[in-house]
Simulated scan of single mutants.
Amino acid sequence: MPSLPPINPDKTAAGIALDPQTLERVIPESRRPDGTVRKQIKIRPGFTPQEDVRRFRGTKQAQQDANALPKGHIIGWAPPPTSQASGSTGKPLSKSAKKNAKRREKKEDKKDEAVADNWEDEEEEPAAGTASSNSGTPAQKSAPTSSSGSTHSPENPNWAAAVDEGSLAAKLDKLDVK
């Protein structure tokens, strides 16, 4: 039994296909935008339209094209060997996945450094009189409260206590809209 031609044959650049019933080269019928149908056009044997003409390549040029390296390939370069033991998954990471992994690592390192490089070290105990003002979290330390009892001095700056509350109240009274 001879093999049957495909139902939807491949078309050339010019739209020429092989008719499955007659095995002739034809431009199949098509539908116009207004809904009417174009007739099927037979192509003379041996005719090749301009769209289907290939660029001439000599034998040496054809051999060079066949043996050509992929675009961007560097002669003599071989990719480094990959070890399956280093990666827990079977698939290697893509370029963007590697970049994102490096970003995550840097972000985690910055978090660790921010905690480790706190400018107020708990190990350094200040003078006995100011020890009660330094207890607590850094957020509590920086909160401006005048009820902590500590005073402002060059050795122990407390900017919340340094503000003159009388002048601040006067300024607020001026801003009050009546």
Rank of each mutant, 00 (worst) to 15 (best):
P126S: 04
I74C: 10
A114N: 13
E122M: 03
A114M: 12
A85T: 06
A14H: 03
Q140P: 00
L93R: 06
S135F: 02
E155Q: 12
P157R: 06
T130P: 00
P138M: 03
W119S: 00
N100P: 02
A160I: 02
T151A: 12
N134T: 04
G15S: 11
P5R: 09
I74V: 15
A66G: 01
P49I: 07
T145M: 04
G46R: 09
I7N: 07
P49L: 06
P2E: 13
F56E: 05
R25W: 13
D173G: 08
Q50L: 08
G129D: 15
R55S: 12
A160W: 01
I41F: 07
E165G: 02
L168P: 01
L18Q: 13
S146G: 10
Q64A: 15
V163K: 09
S132W: 01
E105L: 08
S86P: 03
Q63Y: 10
N118C: 11
P144Q: 08
D112V: 13
P92F: 00
V53Q: 15
R104W: 05
Q50I: 09
T59S: 12
L69G: 00
P138G: 01
E29A: 14
P79C: 02
V26M: 11
A143I: 05
A127K: 05
A85W: 01
K11H: 10
G15K: 05
K141Q: 10
L4R: 13
M1G: 11
A101K: 14
Q61P: 00
D34C: 06
Q40C: 14
G149F: 10
Q50M: 11
Q40S: 15
K95Q: 02
V26I: 15
L172D: 08
K174Q: 14
E124K: 10
L175H: 04
D34I: 09
G136S: 08
A85Q: 10
T12A: 02
D164E: 04
G35T: 14
A78M: 09
K110Y: 11
R103V: 08
N118A: 14
I43E: 05
S147W: 10
D173Q: 05
S167F: 01
S88M: 08
G58P: 12
P9N: 06
D10Y: 03
R38W: 07
A169C: 02
E51L: 13
